[in-house]
Design a binder for these strands. Structure first.
Lengths: 136, 136, 136, 136
DNA sequence: GTGGTCTAGACCACA
DNA sequence: GTGGTCTAGACCACG
């Protein structure tokens, strides 16, 4: 539909399947992949990225376990309908802590960090609105 | 002096050395380890955590590369003096993005996330003040 | 393909891993290992040199940090594509100073040193051309 | 006589005694310490640098073995008279090779390296002349 | 005493 | 198959 959207860096310390997981989750969160959107097939994605199909399959399996995507036999893979349930927020709190710790060690103070946070939040909302606009 | 401060989970998917890196960075950021403070020796920490000294040494090596600690042969390991230089903030931006993505997939909206952010920021400052108070 | 290319001296004051680092950098600089070339695996090199795989792995880790090689899990180790960016030349300046100091203490004067420098430079270029010729 | 001339970095990977050896050799080569010049005593130097006297003693022992300094019992330590004998130049050739390898991996070409070499050579001679001038 | 190097050998993750 | 992690234990260099 829109050609290559993902890319992987084989030299990264992060496993390729993890890079894929992160990117697909980010694409969904950013509004590029709205709920119900069909994803490329394992083979197609593997071909585009020039990586092993097993690696793509592993990423899809993890995303399915996390409830991000749904696989329908014979049809393909789709972005899941967002479950409105607020599950366990532990992972979110951990990421928040990690953010603060990283900021400390880079010499970024509370004020500067708050500003970065608000900027990121605004950009995020803006991106989602633009995607919505596209659909009209 | 105050017994066990760190702990590791050998069954975690996160490597032990990485768990140690994270905890020591968090302890330093939280004010538990002020700049110049001496850390437990490799052998001592390995003994406390019941892990191999090489694993501790690896964590220390990574922390030194990140500028968090300094190792001096024959003397010991110390929390680095803060360089105060504003380095590369890429890693911080990445963590911010990860935070937003995680929030999205857990159904946490911007308002709720902002509240969590402010709460975490306040707790962090409070913790550091308490540490300062201890020193008096 | 061409048998043993490296060798280490376990009795040297220089750590084995450092000897390996130096030799691999020299081999790459001499044109024996062009960018993208695959290196022997950790196990294979350890076997050839009769040293522990961990020691080879440490050398590889350092070379990767210096941007000389790239390690890809499950695939192997490769000479990095030259980044062409002009980085920090401090280490080079230090080596130059060391050269002059060494020359002084060996009673080698400026003229003689200049001659040695030019000779080494010519040999270096010649060596690289021969390697290129081999490829034809 | 002229206060602190040397300094050591306890955080460096290079052993302190080696840092001292290098600096004293460099000072002698640069003309700051002409042959016959008396060096500070072990205790004095250790006190100035706030390091262990054993460390200074080790540096002096190595310098004596290399023929850079001479110790006269009851009198002190002195820069040796330069032996005009051109000994083994192997160490010099090795340093030259290291210089070329380092230049390659930093993307510094032959022309640029030659220029740096000539500049360093000129600065070196200039420094020595200035020192000579001071003595008049 | 400290950290640094190295070994022999196990098990796991990745592609 | 590759590299990555971890262990147990030895020996060395440094200050």
């Amino acid at each position: 539909m829109f050609g290559l959207r993902f890319f992987v860096d084989p030299r990264s310390a992060l496993p390729i399947y993890q890079q894929l997981v992160n990117q697909i989750k980010a694409a969904a969160a950013g509004g590029l992949y709205p709920p119900g959107q069909q994803l490329p097939s394992v083979r197609e994605l593997a071909g585009q990225l020039a990586i092993n199909p097993n690696t793509v399959a592993k990423a899809f399996r993890i995303l399915e376990e996390q409830g991000v995507i749904e696989r329908r036999r014979g049809l393909g893979t789709f972005i899941a309908q967002k479950p409105a349930v607020a599950k366990d927020l532990t992972s979110l709190r951990i990421k928040l802590q990690e953010l603060l710790v990283e900021a400390y060690h880079l010499g970024v103070g509370p004020q500067e960090l708050r500003q970065m946070f608000e900027t990121a939040l605004n950009n995020w909302n803006k991106g989602k609105e633009e995607q919505r606009g596209k659909g009209n």
